[in-house]
Amino acid sequence: MIFSKKKNIVIFIAAFALLVFLYGIGVLKPVENLLTRILNPVLKQFYIIGTDIKNIYEEQTSKYDLTKVVNELREEVMALSGENAKLKTVVRENDILREHLGFLERNELKYVMSNVISKEDILNVGGQTEVIIIDKGEQNGIRRGLSAVNSQGVIIGKVAEAKERVAKIYLASSDKCKLAVTILGDDDTSGIAQGSLGLVIKMDFIPQIKNLNINDIVVSSGLEKDIPRGLVVGKISEVRKESNKLWQSAIIEPMLDMDELIIVSVIIP
């Protein structure tokens, strides 16, 4: 009986090792693709339920003074309306110039819309959400280094890895996500934005001679191969400048709540 039990264990281990080996060399990829295709919709629903519960929990426990926030937002809307009017004029002028110079019509950005199905916190190293998994992958043209945006076109992160039907995205607030950025309206002020502690984004290597202001909008500079120019990253909430250093840095506050992401779009160059 002991011999039979040991024999069963040996058979199990051998079968298991073979399975892992075949999975590792990619022979079982069609099976993996089929399984992820079947399981993705179910996983998406579970994730949405979990996120809804989280949002309700945070709403109840939030201690914000909503009246103060509303008043601040009203002032911001008024300021932005004025700026918007100026920008519309500039856009019109730009269109006319382009017609005159005979530029080719710019391509619309190509994108792949996808659902967030999980946060890769299986091992949960840091406690903050720094990675999300989406239900689209290489089959849809997604590959490493592409940018991901939300429905308003605000950049939320970069694709880290892609399998056939799923992909991993480092959020912009993750220290593994680096973006080449610039200040909106001041193309000469470029730097590297890197996430910090899963909460904020830090922009480094800004020359000391450049003037940075709180609430300046930071956008992608287009200097990276696969990331188009002009995608909003966030706004500056703090400037760190020391006279004895070569560079200054800025803390960028993301313009969206990374924890409320349900649908993201990956920009395909």
Binding site: Q45, F46, Y47, G50, K54, S118, K119
Partner: peptide
């Protein structure tokens, strides 16, 4: 067991604060 694992990955992973542990 597939459903339980999907609940762990999708639902539990999305829960707030320590509940995701």
């Amino acid at each position: 067991f597939s459903l339980i694992t999907l609940i762990q990955i999708g639902f539990v992973g999305a829960l707030p604060v320590w509940f995701s542990e």
